[in-house]
Simulated assay, not measured.
Amino acid sequence: MNIVLWVIAGLLAAAFLAAGVMKLSQPKEKLAASGMGWTESFSSGAVKSIGALELLAAVGLILPALLHVAPIVVPLAALGLVLIMIGAIVTHARRKENQMIGANVVLLILAAVVVWGRFGPYPFGS
């Protein structure tokens, strides 16, 4: 199960690293025009903050465990992603962007599995 959790964390880290970098590096208007219509409901600062949180979570899913420094950060980063995905689901539901909710639910479930595994029966160091 340890390998499964590493794979899930790696997939989540790759997805949220890309998403975070995109939100941090592109203006809100360009993001909205490229299919992220939800950005219209938020300020530029909020979009950048979401991107920064996603980037930090991506790093937090991998580096602490890899470097054996504060591995408790891994499930905390995954928990942060669960919260971000709950916010994303609510936002997309309010905007009636139902096609996006499925992807958010999958990411939420994957992050929740990491939270469960790393806080529960498969912590690092066991």
Rank of each mutant, 00 (worst) to 15 (best):
A111W: 08
F16T: 00
L12W: 04
A33L: 13
L67N: 01
G87C: 08
G51V: 01
S44K: 06
V47H: 04
A18C: 10
M36T: 06
F42E: 00
V21G: 04
A13K: 09
I8D: 15
E40Y: 04
L61S: 06
A111K: 08
M36F: 03
A78E: 05
E40N: 08
K48G: 00
A52Q: 05
S49W: 11
L63W: 14
A15L: 13
F16C: 05
A18N: 09
V59S: 02
E54I: 09
K28N: 05
R118C: 14
I8Q: 03
A18I: 14
A70T: 10
V90E: 08
V21T: 11
W116T: 11
G45L: 05
G45M: 10
A15Y: 14
G10M: 08
A13E: 05
A33W: 00
P64H: 04
H92T: 07
M100Y: 12
A70H: 08
F119M: 14
V73G: 06
G102F: 12
M85T: 01
L61N: 08
A19G: 14
A78Q: 02
H68G: 13
K96A: 07
R94D: 08
K28I: 02
R94C: 12
L11C: 02
K96F: 09
V90I: 14
M100A: 15
I84S: 07
V7S: 12
L56W: 09
L63P: 11
G35N: 11
V105S: 12
L66M: 12
L107D: 06
Q99W: 15
I72T: 07
L17D: 02
F16M: 10
L31E: 05
P71Y: 02
A70W: 13
A78S: 04
A19N: 10
A9H: 01
E97A: 09
I89G: 04
E97S: 10
S34W: 03
V21P: 01
L11P: 02
G80I: 05
T39F: 01
G20E: 00
P27A: 01
S43W: 04
W38K: 06
L11Q: 00
V4W: 11
V47S: 00
V47Y: 04
G20D: 08
V73E: 00
L31C: 02
I101T: 05
V4E: 05
Q26W: 03
V4I: 10
G60W: 02
G117Y: 06
L107M: 14
L11N: 00
A14K: 01
V90F: 11
I62L: 13
L107S: 13
L107P: 13
V113G: 01
A88P: 11
L61Q: 06
I62T: 04
F16Y: 13
I62Q: 09
A32W: 06
V47R: 03
I86C: 15
A70E: 08
L11M: 08
K30Y: 09
